[in-house]
Design a protein around this nucleic acid. Structure first.
Lengths: 223, 223
DNA sequence: CGACTTGTTGACACTGCTCAAGATACGTGG
DNA sequence: CCACGTATCTTGAGCAGTGTCAACAAGTCG
């Protein structure tokens, strides 16, 4: 698969630009290799050489880092269509794991490097993906200075939006994943979600299934 | 290029370390327009159209956002050599202000768009600058889940490194700026810094001048 | 059905915030 | 150069929100 010519890469990338939010990015996946990962399987490790770029096809992925005191911080969650593995230098800052059984497209960065050198559109696509990730990282940092209630509200609203649904959605990740993403404990996440259920803001048919009942109440907490 | 030669630019630099670290990026500044901003002057506003890209020549710049509850969150600090104003779309996510009297090179993004289309090297530079900013944003997010002590230690070490000095440096920003960057109150920043002084980890000839006495003590707190 | 993982709830401790006052540094005009 | 007013920084006391530790409940898989 990696023997695909760079011309093919360019064709895929240029023909699909700007169809939908992720349409252009799917061009990347189309020239990659589909890989399946089981729940909790490692896709790449912290400090490992960043040889590939990835795009989620199905399932969900999380990136994380273990801090000096042993705590785990989630860098981001990636859902179908999302690109991950972009790094400043040639080594990963975070480890990446499949949250549930997932399919991920991977493509060698080397192919991009060769192609992007003479393909302005491909360059722009990669730059654009990086800027999108930058915006997400900045938003993540903003989240971490809010109160527990505000963090959870913002998280639920974001997951709702990314799910493409309007009212209810399934969380692929555990409470522990959410806690490590929001920089709080699993107990506080649980208590906060329960409080939203108690006051009727959301309903919880099951722990992983969220039904938003009062969108306005959550939005009022979202900065 | 430009009425302002790179020699003039270099003369304005307060830190040679910043120059070498970002030497490649100075190609960008050399084709821009030098602008002077007074202390606390706004360089661009939140939600404003992102018409220019900027590089600090001398002084220091902060970006910030006002949250729903009125609190201010600092996005990042920029020192001589640093590029700022990169955005995912065409609107700024943060406002930018001069921390002290500063000189900033600005260049119209339109010029980049035209040039980058046929200049692979320039494309790479811009992409690289974005990836560098992404890495900084991710590191910032990690900071915000640490204890007050750890945040301040990490902040001081980072400012030391960026200053290009090995032991002592001047902080261009106020305690309030630091507090809003680290997601804590000015009182806690002050208390934490004082505690470091009390236990001999640092010395404080003045509030804005930091002397690192025990590098190891700070590094032990830095994840 | 039983073992294990994941999620919920409770009691208490502690970090960092709030509110308040005082100290120091800084800029400006006389 | 000094005096005053203002902005910045430090320090203190009490409190609120979140973490810690522990027990229990629910869900999941073999």
């Amino acid at each position: 698969m990696h023997t695909l010519s760079s011309i093919t890469v360019a064709q895929h990338l240029t023909s699909r630009a700007a169809l939908s939010r992720h349409a252009d990015a799917f061009g990347i996946a189309n020239v990659g290799t589909p890989m399946r990962y089981a729940r909790n399987a490692e896709i790449y490790g912290d400090e490992e050489e960043a040889e590939y770029l990835y795009q989620v096809v199905s399932g969900a992925v999380r990136t994380h880092k273990i801090l000096a005191d042993g705590r785990r911080q989630i860098g981001d969650f990636y859902l179908p269509g999302d690109i991950f593995g972009l790094e400043f230098d040639d080594h990963h800052e975070f480890s990446a794991e499949a949250i549930c059984n997932s399919t991920v497209m991977s493509i060698k960065r080397q192919v991009f490097r060769e192609t992007a050198g003479h393909d302005a559109r491909l360059s722009r696509e990669l730059w654009s993906a990086t800027k999108r990730q930058l915006k997400r990282a900045e938003k993540h940092a903003l989240l971490l200075v809010l109160t527990a209630q505000e963090r959870v509200a913002a998280f639920l609203l974001e997951m709702l939006e990314r799910s493409g649904k309007t009212d209810s959605f399934e969380l692929p990740m555990s409470r522990q994943d959410i806690a490590d993403y929001l920089g709080m404990t699993i107990e506080t996440v649980s208590r906060t979600v329960t409080a939203f259920e108690t006051d009727g803001t959301i309903a919880l048919p099951s722990a992983r299934c969220i039904v938003i009942r009062k969108h306005q109440a959550l939005r009022a907490l979202d900065s």
